[in-house]
Computed example of a mutant assay.
Amino acid sequence: MPWSVRWVGGRGAQSQKQCKKSSFAFYQAVRDLLPVWFLEDMRTMEVFHWEDGGKVSVYSPSEALLYALVHDHQPYARHLLTKFPESALAVPSQSFSCCQSSAPHLAMAVRYNRVRVLFRILKAIQAFPPSDRASHLDRRGCSRVEGGKTALHVACELVRPECLLLLLGHGASPCLQDSAGNTPLDTLLQQISHAPAANTRAKLLCLDCLFFFVPQDLQFAMKQQLLDNRQWWQDLLGVSRFQCLVGLAPPSLFVGAMRVLIRTISPEHFPEALDNLPLPHFLKPLDLKLES
């Protein structure tokens, strides 16, 4: 097979060259959606990559999961998350992540819009101890490259309603700020203001989803800007959304009732339990079957 590789021995330029060849073979195999057993044989027995400092290393489950995310290899992602849940979501080596303080899997799943793999990652996280669960869900990305954004910030920035609802339903905090002091709500409002006519329905859907999870007294950076340009924002968001956001009116009875109902759903049963809630169709972005 063209992706078959030999064990890498020796040091120096020749070893580095063999590692590059081996790494590309594994990348190519994941990209081509080859069977899980074949990929695991490659990863554990044949494939090496070259790290900074001249270290030769095999691919970890965490690094393999990043490749599975990029290429949407769902069976391989499911295997890694089932067999190695903790190590699959651990911080990858420096060759894969410039910031060694966080693992990028959640944010990458959102960035590539891998809704099904994101769902499996969130289900795997639910089995972690509570402190570890929170650190994974609310982990900030690299401050230099990603501005300290959480996966929830990324979902708002890229306007991913399915990803946003999954993250919120599994316990991601809508109150955390990124390096610039913006909450996910600020990030979404900035997207709405920069291109108000683009992807309007998805943006308003994200905003409606956030309404169900943010506390009523949430302080956000964009609030004064909304008040200073009241008419423009009212026309853009609608009067009821605008007044609720800036605190000029309480949430509607519907929003209040949905906040109460959603709080009764445990993360383990999300989003399946949404089917039993009286949500209107336009607030059900998860129009697909997500297998546990």
Rank of each mutant, 00 (worst) to 15 (best):
L65I: 02
G10Y: 08
E46Y: 14
P215T: 10
F254L: 11
K203F: 06
N113Y: 05
A172R: 06
S4C: 10
C209P: 01
V246S: 05
T82K: 10
R78L: 07
S97Q: 11
V159M: 06
R144W: 00
K55D: 12
L152Q: 04
C98D: 12
F119I: 00
G148C: 04
Q94F: 02
P35A: 13
L226F: 06
E268F: 03
A202P: 02
G141E: 12
V260T: 13
A198Q: 14
V117M: 13
L65P: 06
D228N: 10
Q94P: 02
Y27T: 08
S193T: 10
R201K: 12
C98K: 09
D208Y: 02
H73G: 08
Q126G: 00
K284F: 05
K289H: 14
A68V: 04
R11V: 12
V30E: 03
S57C: 10
P129Y: 05
A90P: 05
P184A: 13
Q191A: 13
V36L: 09
Q219D: 06
H105K: 05
A180W: 10
E86H: 09
M42Q: 14
L137G: 03
L288Y: 07
S15W: 05
Q190I: 13
V47N: 09
V159W: 02
L33T: 08
D178H: 08
A77D: 05
L81F: 04
L237R: 03
G256R: 15
L81D: 00
C99K: 01
